[in-house]
Amino acid sequence: MPTVITVRNLVKTYLVGEVEVRALRGVNLEVQAGEFLTVTGPSGSGKSTFMHIIGCLDRPTSGQYLLDGQDVSRMSKDELANVRNHKIGFVFQGFNLLSRTSALDNVELPLLYRGGLTMAERHKLALAALESVGLKDRAGHHTNQLSGGQQQRVAIARAIINQPSILLADEPTGNLDTKTSIEVMGIFQRMNRERNITVVLITHEHDIAEYGTRTAAFRDGVITADHAVARRRLAEDELRDLPPEIDE
């Protein structure tokens, strides 16, 4: 299996006034294509910071990041934009949807910057993406008319619309109830299995971490543990087995 993400000695330091905040203190990691990596760790341990760098949204202070073998730090801004558009799907910790805008238009957004598509084609793709997260009937709704779980699914649909090779999700189940969390994890597992998308997913709940194939733990800006998940949970099975009374 080819290596998709290679990170060597990654350091990120923020300067807040006079004080240096060392969010990442030398992270080393390799992620193979098709893996489902979950990342855990206490609040402030640097998970989001790491994710943003992996997603080409931010630059490290030092260290090396190879994406598909290419050194990201040598890329121009426009090349990075291109990478974000084509290779990476990002689901933010707070969904970051455009307000007063329909779900469909939100999902379509990355397509606008891909180019070469007619309006009809964009609509078709966006509808298909919404369908794959089970939200086709809400395509015309504004995002503020959707529940938290639905908004999360719109964000996922937007992240997968450009057929990325990597899907990055920052606490996608952060404020969802148990059943909705399992549903959302099911979507990620399906994307990972059916489309062979590499998934890196942050969570601070250990049971959510068990939906991945491998899990890494952050503490104080470094990875302290990294191992395969012994007994992987499968969302589809669990949803099937859920007692009907919870199903409302």
């Binding site: 801004k77 426009d78 291109n82 084509h86 450009n162």
Partner: peptide, 9 residues
Amino acid sequence: LRLAVGARG
């Protein structure tokens, strides 16, 4: 957000 989903400056 637009930059994040691939818009160029």
